[in-house]
């Protein structure tokens, strides 16, 4: 029932936008065709990737690596000046799971363990990396710090990653969170409905308090 309702809502939204600007129809159709062809190609040729339809791709989608990638229904990859969605899985037991109704803009994911994005989450041009160094085999062979840290990343539903945010290994971000511009989050648990900021992020500020302080309720 919920799925049906959400589809009706999105249809209404699209129809409203088309009434406002008829060119949007062409864009959406093209994005749908492109997204579906990506999903078909990746689903048939590369069996480890599964993209649920409908999938709108306004920009380029690149999925590389032997690990498992699952995208939920009704995701959209929006326009960005620089890049589209890039997902790189570095090992065979890596899993990337992205929920329904996500808006992904210029997101880059490097995964060697487990990355989970909740439903309805929004991202700008940001980086999610669940190991410290991508070139893993290289790090393991050298130096004092021989172990490359890998921890799963979990991002709750309706979270918003802002531009240039970096999410590193072992971070858990609760539902309805906002990660602010240029902040780096590592080995942290951010509570639900809070604002994470700074490099490195120390603790999340509850958004209710922030709203009260700035006077915009």
């Amino acid at each position: 029932m919920g799925g049906f309702q959400s589809i009706v809502f999105t249809m209404c939204d699209i129809i409203k936008k088309i009434m406002a600007d008829p060119r949007y129809a062409v864009h959406v159709l093209w994005a749908l065709v492109r997204g579906c062809s990506y999903a078909l190609y990746l689903g048939v040729v590369r069996r480890n990737v599964r993209i649920r339809l409908p999938f709108k791709a306004f920009a380029r989608v690149t999925i590389i690596g032997p690990g498992r990638v699952i995208l939920g229904k009704n995701c959209a990859v929006a326009h960005s000046a620089f890049k589209g969605l890039t997902i790189v899985t570095l090992s065979e037991d890596a899993t990337v799971r992205i929920g329904e109704n996500c808006h992904l803009t210029g997101l880059t994911i490097y995964c060697c363990n487990h990355v989970e994005l909740g439903s309805k989450s929004m991202t700008a041009v940001s980086l999610i990396q669940d190991c410290l160094f991508v070139n893993q085999s290289f790090v393991r062979t050298r130096g004092k710090h021989s172990v490359n840290e890998c921890g799963p990343i979990a991002i709750g539903s309706n979270a918003w990653l802002s531009t240039d945010a970096i999410i590193l290994s072992g971070s858990k971000i609760g539902a309805d969170c906002v990660v602010s511009v240029g902040s780096v989050c590592r080995d942290m648990e951010v509570k639900p409905y809070s604002l994470a900021m700074g490099n490195p992020v120390r603790r999340g500020l509850p958004i209710a308090n922030v709203m009260r302080m700035t006077g915009s309720t």
Partner: peptide, 26 residues
Amino acid sequence: RVCIGARSFITRGVKIEDDVLVFPGS
């Protein structure tokens, strides 16, 4: 044996000694 992570920046006049690990984004 220095490892420098992604999206970090090294400014002028910096000396990084041996076996250092610089985290991403620093």
